[in-house]
Design a protein around this nucleic acid. Structure first.
Lengths: 159, 159
DNA sequence: CCCAAATATCGGGATATCCCTGTATTAAAG
DNA sequence: CTTTAATACAGGGATATCCCGATATTTGGG
């Protein structure tokens, strides 16, 4: 009898696959907790970063860099938020190529409403995983996210 | 100590965001190394799992469970692989609701061609990150990926 | 000042990923 | 054996994510 009830996720040796599986599971979890406020984990992460900048609204490029995303991805992902009036893109007067991403009043309100839910997700996860373990894991993940040798691996052969 | 007045100016404390950023960076890296063989990291991961099953080709549901993906995602992602003739879906005779995913000869060949590139990515990452650290990280990520409390978090309240 | 290079973004196209709802098939209840 | 529930997918719709190539703007060199 194949154990259909408890499938072993598997001792895959692939660092990338391991990271992606965990990332999908974690996203499932945060998405399910955030669902009542109508924001996905990606949207919450973007709003967090935009709110954190506060006085100096980031450009698409800056936001992409911080969130380890592609510029086009940011542009696409901003569309639903813009459509719902949570963010507004205003052309930078100094450099008119750039558009700075600002939180609207509605955006700040929706973000504030989402924050308690995010805290619930944080508490629930760290309650099981360990607060210290979570902090350690975030630190390790941060070194990976910022590692320039991973980021620039495919840059040289293109230009 | 949640400083209510002072805005947090540091690395994000969100476990989900940290995981997703690292996952995107790692995917960038593996994708860039795998690019010459025409397979994305997700596709390579799917082929790996299909190949690992060998004699017992998995169903869409089984593959989804092992890879921590949605069934629809697997179905969608199989389409390009099927179109290129790397995999074939054959209806299970015992349970005709199921379709078992098998590697074709072409699929096995493409997978074999991709494997050395995957090894390069593994070596390059672990060379910088540490072989031991990578194994430890994979173990931690595995516990997250198969954590039932994360998986079932939003299941009870819906049906 | 003019032109080439760099920068910031946009647009199209493709895959990836989820949700929800339907359909076919099987298994279980009565 | 018939109705019902559960299971396995398929399809549509939406967001997420990347790449590539095009456009607008700025900047630096001559």
């Amino acid at each position: 009898m194949t154990s259909a009830s408890t499938p072993v996720i598997g001792p895959s040796r692939c660092n990338c696959a391991a990271l992606r599986k965990a990332s999908r599971r974690m996203s499932q979890f945060y998405d399910s907790v955030l669902a009542p406020c109508g924001l996905k984990s990606t949207q919450y992460a973007m709003l967090t970063e935009i709110a954190r900048q506060g006085a100096a609204p980031p450009t698409i490029r800056e936001l992409a860099e911080v969130l380890v995303m592609d510029q086009s991805t940011i542009g696409q992902n901003l569309r639903p938020l813009e459509r719902e009036g949570l963010v507004a893109l205003v052309q930078d007067e100094a450099d008119r190529r750039s558009r700075r991403i600002t939180l609207t009043k509605v955006g700040r309100s929706r973000f504030a409403a989402a924050e308690p839910l995010w805290r619930v997700a944080q508490e629930r996860f760290e309650g099981g995983f360990g607060r210290r373990a979570a902090a350690d894991l975030r630190a390790v993940l941060g070194t990976i996210a910022r590692d320039p040798s991973l980021a620039d691996a495919g840059e040289g052969s293109l230009r």
